[in-house]
């Protein structure tokens, strides 16, 4: 019998320990599929960030470097500058990339570092129990915004793709979601594209994946998928924000 659906080689044969309905598992799989697709497992270095995704080193079967909160783009820069033959991806959450690591992501992007960034936006700090993130929606209740995020005291949801697309140094920026099969298919295509950009030495690529956090959102997995569809997509529209991969040499 021919198997029609198998575990990608780039994932270890261990079960994910993420919460039920969390999207990290799906996004991990899409990254692994991209690594398999290009046959680059033996020259890929992944970055495990601080947050729920730190356990990336338990799941991916490529070499993994665990990096301090927010600093993966700097560490990726060090790796890629020292060994341009290696393929480097960082996998970061919204607190990591869009709050404590804002300087690092902007400057790595602006330098056009030839790296691939997977940015997982679930609108809160998951690992620490659901505090407000820079991407938390206005009115969204979190552990540190019990009455909902207020623009007057907490500012607005930070739009990373829109911001990075304005930088001349970036090559490919796209926002995707994995809350239904159609979106997930598109997300897989986008992540492959982001790795392709790096493989062709065309510079900085970032894929923002909107993701669920049913535990901290206090929703069922199905409700969380709906919340992404109805609330998050309005604030964080999906689509390609920048693509200069065809014109870059």
């Amino acid at each position: 019998m021919r198997p029609v659906f198998v575990r990608p080689n780039a994932l270890k044969n261990v079960p994910f320990r993420f919460c039920p309905g969390c999207h990290h598992g799906i996004i991990h799989r899409l990254v692994a599929e991209a690594i398999d697709h290009f046959g680059i497992l033996d020259r890929t270095i992944g970055i495990a960030p601080v947050g729920c995704a730190v356990f990336a080193y338990d799941y991916f079967s490529c070499d993994i470097l665990e990096v301090a909160h927010g600093r993966p783009p700097a560490a990726c820069t060090g790796i890629k500058r020292a060994r341009p033959d290696l393929i480097v991806f960082s996998y970061q959450g919204d607190g990591d990339l869009a709050s404590i690591g804002t300087a690092e992501i902007i400057h790595a992007a602006n330098r056009g570092e030839n790296i691939t960034v997977i940015f997982v936006n679930n609108a809160n700090y998951g690992m620490t129990g659901g505090q407000m993130a820079p991407t938390t929606l206005l009115g969204q209740k979190t552990k540190t915004t019990p009455k909902g995020r207020s623009a007057s005291s907490d500012g607005y949801p930070l739009k990373v793709c829109e911001m990075l697309a304005t930088l001349e140094g970036t090559t490919y920026i796209e926002r995707v979601a994995v809350n239904n099969p159609g979106h997930t298919k598109e997300a897989g295509r986008a992540i492959k594209k982001a790795f392709k950009v790096q493989l062709e030495n065309k510079g900085f690529s970032l894929i923002e994946a909107l993701a669920s956090c049913p535990t901290n959102w206090e929703m069922s997995p199905a409700q969380a998928n709906m919340w992404i569809e109805e609330k998050m997509l309005k604030v964080f529209p999906l689509g390609i924000y920048k693509d200069t991969s065809e014109t870059k040499i």
């Binding site: 270095i45 060090g78 020292a82 290696l86 690092e104």
Partner: peptide, 15 residues
């Protein structure tokens, strides 16, 4: 912060 983490990355790949 970025400089020391660039060192971190470069050192991790053996440089």
């Amino acid at each position: 912060l970025a400089a020391i983490n660039m060192v971190f990355g470069a050192a991790a790949v053996g440089a």
